[in-house]
Design a protein around this nucleic acid. Structure first.
Lengths: 213, 213, 213, 213
DNA sequence: GATGAATGAGGATTCATTCAT
DNA sequence: CATGAATGAATCCTCATTCAT
């Protein structure tokens, strides 16, 4: 996007910003937004409290920036999964599931957090796009649903509402991620590949042995 | 459970308690725990601030009581769905999905809220059971998985990990509920029956037309 | 004072009032004014909270009533000690010391409490006299000092400021009482007679063996 | 004790802490613990409310710090009075009385306050020593009593319980102090020297003219 | 009279944000 | 730029007091 190469100053600034984001992300994700104080974030990032305000105008703004990052990654992942030209539907879904699960193991609760605080956020007048969880999800589902749409047109999958399908597929993936981190003591540890495989298989093939049943 | 008939006093006390719970639930659900002040809860319940404390020892306690209620309902629903003797697996799953969706339309985000605050809650030393989200989910999944177990033994569904199946099925249902309330402007309004039907159908039969694909 | 014999109603009212006073006194003395809630007082007195207000207009008023009682007793004791016609100075002082110590064992900290809250009390516009600790002490010292005055005139004690002497004598007695209850684990348990005797002896005779020293 | 010279920052921090302590002490002493709000303390100290909490973790902690200061001073005074090598018993007692009275004119009711709240304070788990009024008094009396002990052994004072003597002597001094501030309108203003002299004289010599009386 | 549920003023405490250094 | 001491708005909670039953 930014064509001009960054000066050392700018690069350093960006690096420090990322350090702060990382510290805040880690804390927000593990303790929740309100349970995390700016004091802690600053200590974690090894900066003074005031310094944070040179990079983000408020705690809320910091939160938004993190959301933005995470949303961007999810969108990128979805985009690349769904628009790959050399893969069929099953592969596309697998790629998506695999990517989300991988990502989630690092950023366990981010979706939860984004959801939870989503609507209590004051609309961010400054920057324009993508701070809204709903917008992001809409795009994600839209991208996925287009794949289904094609499959439906080719009569390879049943003629169901593609958006609903996208949502339900995503729901399986996302809930699995969440549970995995949250209830790791309950859930058997399995390879990410196997899990993604399982989800896709269920979604496409169902679990019943005899479909005439 | 409570065999002795309640006196008028006791009934009124319970009624007022429920009023407070309702007000708090509504606010917690729509704004989140921290965004809701006791002042608001009191105003909403049309009581004085201090009165709340005659019924609940703290804001946290109030939150726990709400969780408890919701958890109980979910468990009851699961139990009654999964142990019905005169229904097959498909019916059982449908009953569960239908019940959760119905319930969720009233208490949209409760699960989210419970999840989110779950681990920042200090363990409630007083009463023993069921305040823990993980415990509840474990029970729910366990109940569902038993049904799958039987089906697997009868070779009516594929030999997959029944707990994982329970979790994924529940995930579809739950995520659907959440999205429905959260993104009602995006999602087409459909009958609860149809939706439950759809989820069960996908889960059992898959969406692919040709399973040999 | 009240010449007319009291009706049963009046006697019962008085009895209940005394029960409340006793409960409050016990709690105030052992826990302090602010640490004692009206709830506790009511429970202790086995009355409803509201009932207290039928007998005392406020917590402060209740406190004042207790002070009043204790002050009255102290004044009575001082009066009777100091005006006894058939006793010399030594006997008078002994009688006073003995009485105060005896009383204090029951009402350990009342003096402390009265002192402490004395000046933070809003002046009681209603009743006129004796709610003021300073007034009471002034009277007590005045009564004691008159005895000293006489002794000085008769050259039986040194010509020192009688008020100062009264105050210092009372100080020994009072501090002893306080310490005795407060630090009972430190202080040897002794007979009240012996203690009173000791104090009077020190005050009159000093502890030095050779006064020419 | 503190060998390293303090940096400017540290000195300023300490100075501000002392300002807060002074404001709190003044208010606690004149109005009592509960009657003083943190708001007032802050205003008095000319700081914001929150600033107080940068120096003391709670109102109670602030109170403890004040007690600690006052206790330390009392102990220092006692120590230096009683262990002076070039003074006899009379001088030692005079020095003590003089010191306490001087100190008390500044911090009139501190002992009262310490006494009063002493037992309602939760034990301060953090630091170990000296927050306890009982401990301090025990040490003070012990120090004084040793002087009496020696005098008794040398048969210069009567063979009475030295701890009791210490307690009673201290009682005269302390009560005098208290009364002086509390009832300054009643008590004649006298020089501190004269007062200390008087107390010592009474304690050693008694007030009676003729000891054979 | 007795009661105790309801009340809300009052106070301790937290923490995002500012700003002088 | 970085800092962290200072700030006070905001919030939970307590408890004396009232009043309908």
């Amino acid at each position: 996007m930014s064509s001009a190469p960054l000066s050392r100053k700018e690069r350093e600034k960006l690096a420090r910003q990322e350090e702060i984001l990382a510290a805040a992300r880690s804390l927000f994700l593990s303790k929740g937004y309100h349970e995390t104080t700016l004091e802690e974030i600053a200590r974690h990032a090894e900066f003074g409290k005031g310094t944070i305000y040179n990079y983000f105008s408020s705690k809320e703004d910091l939160f938004r920036a993190i959301n933005h990052q995470l949303f961007e990654r999810l969108l990128d992942l979805t985009q690349s999964s769904m628009t790959a030209t050399d893969s069929n539907c099953r592969d596309k879904l697998f790629h998506y599931a695999h990517g989300v699960i991988t990502h989630a193991r690092e950023n366990s609760e981010w979706i939860l957090m984004a959801m939870q605080r989503g609507h209590s956020l004051k609309p961010d007048e400054g920057k324009q796009s993508m701070k809204n969880f709903a917008d992001v999800m809409q795009k994600v589902w839209s991208l996925i649903s287009r794949v289904f749409q094609v499959e439906i047109e080719n009569q390879r999958i049943r003629a169901l509402d593609p958006i609903a399908l996208a949502m339900l597929f995503d729901g399986m993936v996302r809930t699995y991620c969440f549970n995995h981190v949250k209830f790791s003591h309950i859930i058997k540890e399995t390879e990410i590949e196997q899990t993604a495989e399982l989800i896709v298989s269920i979604f496409l093939d169902g679990i019943a042995v005899d479909k005439t049943n």
